[in-house]
């Protein structure tokens, strides 16, 4: 594989694991492994879907990819690209104006103050907040805040965008607009890793899918195939639970 080509890896995880501590006393800390054995890579320009049941470790995995937390075992090889979690309304402070929150939020997302100020007109325009941008955001409706938050993160610079579930926000009209904008961004040259529970969305936008189960990479490959076996697994698992319940119900009788 050659560097810089369309197929080059920008980040690779090898048998990676992460633990958290369960709160005990000062000297009594218990580890629990959220991720156990994760191995996959993300190639430049692709859109990678991450699926798995609740508690499988998907969000922790995104934090790991974003460099927010470090692995406790295994390795992460990165080409040093700037990865960031799509965080809506990051650092929003109720008493500051929409404009000031946009600046602060943008700076937290890695922009220079001058950069974000240059992008402000576009952000204000996209969020449809022209008349309100100098008002404190405590006077905003939750929809207005969501729009501003989304517009800022849409303009934040990143090479690897990590999305946890949500790609559209606001009311029906803005939701459509934001989903479209996000899809456009995803389909562009940007590299994306997205966690989602919606198989339809994954099939539509992802080039490849990784399936995480109990902190272990269960399978990876073509979206159709992986989602197929994932759904079969879920069905079987649910059925398994139901059968167990039936058995115990019979036993009680």
């Amino acid at each position: 594989m050659h560097n810089g080509g369309p197929d080059s890896e920008i980040i690779r995880l090898e048998n990676t694991g992460v633990f958290y501590w369960k709160k005990g006393g000062l000297f009594r800390k218990e580890r629990f492994w959220v991720l156990n054995d994760i191995s996959f890579s993300i190639r430049k320009g692709e859109t990678l879907g991450i699926i798995g049941r609740n508690g499988a470790g998907k969000s922790t995995l995104l934090k790991l990819l974003a460099g927010i937390i470090a692995p406790n075992k295994g390795t992460i090889v990165s080409n040093g690209c700037r990865a960031s979690l799509l965080s809506l309304q990051i650092g929003f402070t109720p008493h500051l104006s929409g404009r000031e929150n946009a600046i602060f939020s943008g700076m937290l997302l890695g922009m220079k103050r001058s950069e974000i100020e240059a992008k402000l007109p576009a952000i204000i325009d996209f969020s449809e907040l022209e008349g309100f941008i100098h008002d404190p955001i405590r006077t905003y409706s939750s929809g207005m805040k969501a729009r501003l938050g989304f517009a800022i993160s849409l303009h934040a610079p990143t090479e690897l965008l990590l999305i946890d579930e949500v790609i559209g926000v606001g009311d029906a009209a803005f939701r459509e607009k934001s989903v479209a904008a996000m899809k456009e961004r995803i389909k562009s040259n940007l590299t994306v890793a997205i966690v989602s529970h919606m198989p339809g969305l994954i099939k539509e936008i992802c080039d490849r899918v990784v399936w995480i189960e109990n902190g272990i990479t269960q399978d990876q490959g073509e979206p159709e195939q992986i989602i197929g076996s994932y759904e079969a697994f879920i069905k079987k698992h649910k059925f398994g639970i139901r059968r167990k319940m039936n058995n115990s119900a019979t036993a009680m009788r």
């Binding site: 500051l96 600046i103 602060f104 700076m107 937290l108 220079k112």
Partner: peptide, 19 residues
């Protein structure tokens, strides 16, 4: 960037306090 962000955070906190 670190200094710029530190200053803006301090400014934002003061502004929030004041308003």
């Amino acid at each position: 960037n670190v200094i710029e962000l530190m200053l803006y955070k301090a400014y934002a906190d003061l502004k929030a306090e004041a308003s």
